[in-house]
Amino acid sequence: MTAPSQPILDEPTRSFVQRCLSAGLVEINDIKKVVVSLQAEGSAFTAKRLAEGLIGAGLLTHWQANKLLAGKSKGFYLGSYRLLRPLGKGGMGVVYLGEHHVMKRLMALKIMPPESVADKRRADRFREEARASAQLDHPNIVRAYDFAEAGGKLYIVMEYIDGIDLQAAVRRDGVMSVPLALDAIRQATCGLAHAHDRGVIHRDIKPSNLMLRTDGVVKVSDMGLARVSWMGIDEQSTNNRLLGTADFVAPEQAINSKSVDARADIYSLGCTLYYLLTGQAPFSGNTIAQRLAKHQTAAPPDVRSIHPDCPNAVAELVMRMMAKRPEDRPKSAAELL
């Protein structure tokens, strides 16, 4: 009597296949094609090897495969979007790359965690971010297209930027040349001028919130802390909490974030220009309190002390943008242009 043949897939691999199907990420016929291909290669069948084959065939992303290998079979879809991978974290949530299941268009989905949705103040603030973003339509601002709720999660559908933020760019490539840094700041200023004209103050301008697309276009992102003049945003509960980022926040914003105007964004943009040219924040300190104190009292640092070849006019521009008193800075982003 002939012994029964051994199954091609062992139990862990069959469980992995079942999770792929249950998650709605892969069709059984596609899995069979990958199995046949792996058989032709003489590869040993394990869940990990099959996952690698599905990734190679473009059927799974690395993030999806790792989640499936870890035993997950849910959380791969949100509304009309298939989640491909995390892109990063914003002021109010995690951002994922998503693909519309019909249109196949790639979008960035900013998702508010379910535990935060129960907090009415935070949920209202997230909705206000969506409303503020929807009012802005400019080539140098990340566009927002939709706001929705699914599976107990609130999310904003935004333009996907194929690139990296300016902080990551400097860490990867080193400090920018003066022309490149000025061009990046000019583009960001164009976007801010559009926002300011519509009553939107960003309040969290920094290198990591300026996205550099692969074609060189710079876009302002993350309106999570924006102050909108025509919205009745309740910020009473933020009185004792810093709104902004300590390395780039304007002196007056650290004291009272509710009363700031466009000149606070200009100060933060000056700090950002300093970072692009030197690779470091303007003020050092072991604690947030120490850095905030320097924003309040220390003279703006001279770029030329680190970047001796920086033209005098550019160094003076940085110091003017970082003036302690708002009235000593350029009055608006439009004036800065």
Results as ranks from 00 to 15, higher is better:
77 Y>P: 02
95 V>F: 06
100 H>G: 14
102 V>F: 06
72 K>Q: 00
87 L>K: 04
93 G>N: 09
73 S>C: 04
84 L>T: 12
88 G>L: 01
104 K>C: 11
102 V>D: 07
69 L>R: 11
73 S>Y: 02
98 G>L: 01
96 Y>E: 08
67 K>N: 10
68 L>S: 10
91 G>T: 08
75 G>E: 02
86 P>D: 03
95 V>M: 06
76 F>S: 04
71 G>W: 00
89 K>N: 05
94 V>M: 15
100 H>C: 13
104 K>T: 13
76 F>T: 04
97 L>V: 07
81 Y>C: 13
82 R>V: 13
101 H>R: 14
101 H>L: 13
77 Y>T: 07
77 Y>H: 09
78 L>T: 10
92 M>V: 08
68 L>E: 04
76 F>C: 05
81 Y>D: 07
81 Y>R: 08
68 L>F: 09
85 R>N: 15
95 V>N: 07
104 K>W: 05
77 Y>S: 05
97 L>A: 12
98 G>T: 02
99 E>T: 14
92 M>I: 07
68 L>W: 05
97 L>D: 09
98 G>P: 02
75 G>H: 03
69 L>P: 04
100 H>N: 15
104 K>L: 14
83 L>S: 09
85 R>K: 15
73 S>D: 07
96 Y>Q: 07
74 K>N: 00
79 G>A: 10
84 L>H: 10
91 G>V: 08
101 H>C: 11
90 G>M: 03
80 S>G: 07
90 G>N: 03
97 L>G: 12
82 R>M: 12
93 G>C: 11
78 L>A: 10
104 K>D: 11
94 V>I: 14
90 G>K: 01
69 L>Q: 09
70 A>E: 01
102 V>Y: 03
92 M>G: 11
96 Y>F: 15
85 R>C: 15
102 V>K: 09
87 L>P: 11
91 G>E: 09
101 H>F: 11
75 G>D: 01
75 G>Y: 02
69 L>W: 07
80 S>W: 00
85 R>S: 15
71 G>L: 02
72 K>W: 00
102 V>E: 08
84 L>W: 06
83 L>G: 10
89 K>L: 02
84 L>S: 13
103 M>H: 13
98 G>V: 03
85 R>T: 15
70 A>S: 13
69 L>I: 10
104 K>S: 13
97 L>R: 04
89 K>E: 09
79 G>Y: 01
92 M>P: 12
81 Y>F: 15
69 L>F: 08
77 Y>F: 10
79 G>K: 02
86 P>L: 01
74 K>G: 00
86 P>M: 01
94 V>Y: 07
92 M>N: 10
103 M>K: 15
69 L>H: 09
70 A>C: 05
79 G>S: 10
72 K>T: 00
83 L>M: 12
75 G>W: 01
103 M>C: 11
97 L>K: 06
81 Y>L: 12
70 A>K: 08
102 V>I: 14
83 L>I: 15
103 M>D: 12
90 G>E: 03
88 G>E: 02
68 L>A: 12
76 F>L: 06
72 K>D: 00
99 E>N: 13
78 L>C: 11
71 G>C: 04
87 L>Y: 04
104 K>G: 12
98 G>Y: 00
97 L>C: 12
67 K>A: 13
67 K>R: 15
75 G>N: 04
82 R>Q: 14
76 F>R: 02
92 M>F: 10
84 L>R: 10
82 R>C: 13
87 L>N: 06
98 G>W: 00
85 R>G: 15
97 L>N: 07
71 G>F: 00
94 V>A: 14
75 G>F: 05
